[in-house]
Simulated scan of single mutants.
Amino acid sequence: MTRNSARPTVTARPASPCPCGLDASYRDCCGRLHSGQAAAPTAERLMRSRFSAFAVRDAAYLLRTWHSTTRPSGIEFEPDQQWTRLEIVGATDGSAFHTEGMVEFRAHYRLHGHTDSQHEVSRFVREDALWVYLGEATA
């Protein structure tokens, strides 16, 4: 999900539907997390907010929600890639009562006129009491 340009270049209007797929406006959903007004209460909500951050190209949020031991030095976005839909396949743990969780998802996108998806099982942990992305789960 990373490639070309660390600065957001795609904006989501506050009243537009949230890219994460929940039935809420961007302002009332992931926009609150991206702006720092709220923190993700579960691993799945963090996954959704990170997908939205890719969709609006918010590198600062992605880096802020990446575990300190696996965080890259920067994010580059593919300029022609448009993230179109997030499908949550399943989640294990990751609630307000857990310290670890996994979320399996398919992130759908359009690139150079073709549609495709990225399938991953992501690992999330709490760092300084906040959910963060640790990395892709390995078998």
Rank of each mutant, 00 (worst) to 15 (best):
Arg123Ala: 12
Glu127Val: 15
Glu127Gly: 13
Thr138Asp: 05
Thr99Ser: 15
Glu78Lys: 08
Cys29Val: 06
Thr92Asn: 14
Met1Gln: 03
Glu44Phe: 00
Asp23Trp: 03
Ala38Ser: 11
Cys29Ala: 05
Pro8Lys: 01
Tyr61Ile: 07
Thr11Phe: 09
Gly36Ala: 04
Phe105Leu: 13
Thr9Arg: 13
Thr65Leu: 13
His114Ser: 09
Ala12Gln: 12
Ile88His: 00
Glu78Gln: 12
Gly90Met: 06
Gln118His: 14
Gln81Glu: 13
Val89Ile: 15
Ala39Ile: 05
Met102Lys: 15
Ala6Gln: 05
Arg57Pro: 01
Gly31Glu: 05
Tyr61Gly: 07
Val103Met: 00
Glu104Gly: 14
Val103Thr: 02
Asp93Met: 06
Ser5Ala: 11
Ala60Asn: 09
Leu33Trp: 07
Thr9Glu: 05
Asp58His: 14
Gln118Trp: 06
Ala24Trp: 02
Ile75Thr: 05
Pro17Met: 12
Gly31Trp: 04
Val121Asn: 01
Met47Lys: 09
Arg71Phe: 03
Gly101Leu: 05
Ser25Glu: 09
Pro72Thr: 12
Ala15Phe: 03
Ser122Cys: 06
Gln37Met: 11
Tyr26His: 07
Gly21Gln: 02
Thr115Leu: 02
Asp58Pro: 06
Cys20Ser: 13
Gly90His: 01
Arg110Ser: 12
Ala40Phe: 03
Ala6Asn: 09
His34Trp: 10
Leu86His: 05
Trp83His: 04
Glu104Arg: 15
Gly31Tyr: 04
Ala24Met: 08
Arg27Glu: 12
Arg13Thr: 04
Gln82Ala: 13
Tyr61Phe: 14
Asp116Gln: 08
Ser35Val: 03
Arg123Asp: 00
Ser122Glu: 08
Ser52Thr: 15
Arg106Met: 14
Ala137Phe: 13
Ala129Val: 10
Phe54Pro: 10
Gly21His: 01
Val121Glu: 04
Arg106Cys: 15
Leu63Tyr: 02
Arg126Asp: 10
Gly94His: 02
Gly31Cys: 11
Asn4Leu: 12
Pro41Ala: 11
His108Lys: 02
Thr138Ile: 13
Met47Ala: 08
Gln81Met: 15
Ala139His: 09
Arg123Gly: 02
Glu78Cys: 12
Val132Gly: 03
Ala24Leu: 10
Gln118Cys: 12
Pro72Asp: 09
Cys20Leu: 05
Asp116Leu: 06
Ser73Val: 08
Ser95Thr: 15
Val103Ser: 00
Val56Asn: 01
Ile75Asp: 00
Gln118Ser: 14
Arg27Pro: 01
Ala107Thr: 07
Tyr133Phe: 14
Ser117Trp: 13
Glu104Val: 10
Phe77Glu: 02
His108Ser: 06
Leu46Glu: 00
Ser35His: 10
Asp28Thr: 11
Ser49Pro: 04
Tyr26Ser: 04
Arg48Ile: 06
His67Arg: 06
Ala43Tyr: 02
Arg106Trp: 00
Arg50Val: 08
Arg48Pro: 05
Gly74Glu: 14
Val132His: 02
Pro17Thr: 11
Ala96Trp: 01
Val89Lys: 08
Thr84Asn: 02
Glu136Ile: 15
Thr70Phe: 05
His114Met: 03
Ile75Met: 14
Asp128Ile: 08
Asp116Arg: 04
Pro17Cys: 14
Ile88Glu: 01
Pro72Tyr: 02
Cys30Lys: 09
Gly36Ser: 03
Asp23Ile: 10
Thr138Trp: 06
Arg85Ala: 12
Arg71Gly: 08
Ala129Pro: 00
Ala137Met: 10
His119Ala: 11
Ala96Tyr: 00
Pro19Gln: 00
Trp131Gly: 10
Ala15Arg: 09
